[in-house]
Amino acid sequence: MRPMRNMERRQVTEGKILLAHGSGGGLTHQLVREVFSKHLANPWLDAQEDAAVWQAPHACGRFALTTDSYVVQPLFFPGGDIGKLAVCGTVNDLAMVGAQALYLTAGFILEEGLPVDALERIVCSMAKTAEEAGVQVIAGDTKVVDHGSADQLFINTAGIGTVAPDVHISAGNAQPGDGILLSGPIGLHGMAIMCEREGLGFTWPLQSDCAPLNGLVCTMLAVDTHIHCLRDPTRGGLATTLCELATQSKIQMEIEESSIAIPAGVSAACEMLGLDPLYVANEGILVAIVPPELEASMLASMHAHPLGRNAALIGRVTSSDHARVVLHTTLGARRLLQVLAGEQLPRIC
């Protein structure tokens, strides 16, 4: 076979990520300019320094810092994509300690051969989601690995935020008597991904609930800062999150199965695939544990926010004798919820 001439090579590889895009040389600069800076532009990124330097807000209280990596497959799914997820996930992790996200960093690991178009769509989606969440991506990194060493694209984001002085939210703070609130219906993200992956075509396709929750948390904190616990039930689903909260707070909670909203499409897909919606991942809902006197006002504030319209009281912390979660089933039986063992659905976030 004759060697491929340069011209032909260029035609074959046009629009694809090459190893050279991660070389730090001309192609890297071109990629940064034409994809990342184009969509995520701000003074810190535009300065192209090795690190972003910013002025801490006055009287900001404490800082919160978190990081997460995103390996979801497929990259694009109904209701979102890996870029939206990478922003929401980190913003939400900050929101769950009551922090308002300020800035994010984004690290990209790209597989050789990834279409640049796909990357641009993802970066564009990150920019849109960041704007919605009121944060900016102020530092970034790109690496390219050879074909087969990664699956298309992985993203890591880190986020920093500030926590107001009177906010003390922790998974260990639940107290007997507290009410357990759930902001919306469960199972949408995991089942949207699964249906897309398995090619299950429903008349009404399931949309991931992927959304930044900092606005909802902000609304709730405006009512009262004495929220005891917040957590977004991502991997492992609602059941695993409730078990984690019970363990960390060393309390028993009792949950009414009938008060948990499960969309019909989620139920149907779970039945077909033999999955339990209580263990399916979510990316746009939260569990809040609040003192009983705050339940009504907190619920009202959640109902007024687009992401909390279907918020409901799903149960109560009943004692500190056991660290466990008791589910009252719709048929009147009681059983214990356990944390998810193993992986119900791999690579959902």
């Binding site: 033999g274 009943t318 004692s319 466990r324 009681r334 059983r335 356990q338 063992a341 193993g342």
Partner: peptide
């Protein structure tokens, strides 16, 4: 033998009796 560290097949399989007992433990007392 737990769902995370199964020793026998009845704990491994989704249809196994041990997996069912471990997953859906009945709540005794209050």
């Amino acid at each position: 033998c737990t769902p995370a560290t199964p020793i026998g097949p009845c704990m491994v399989s989704g249809e196994g009796a041990c997996a069912a007992y471990a997953q859906y433990g009945e709540a005794s007392g209050d």
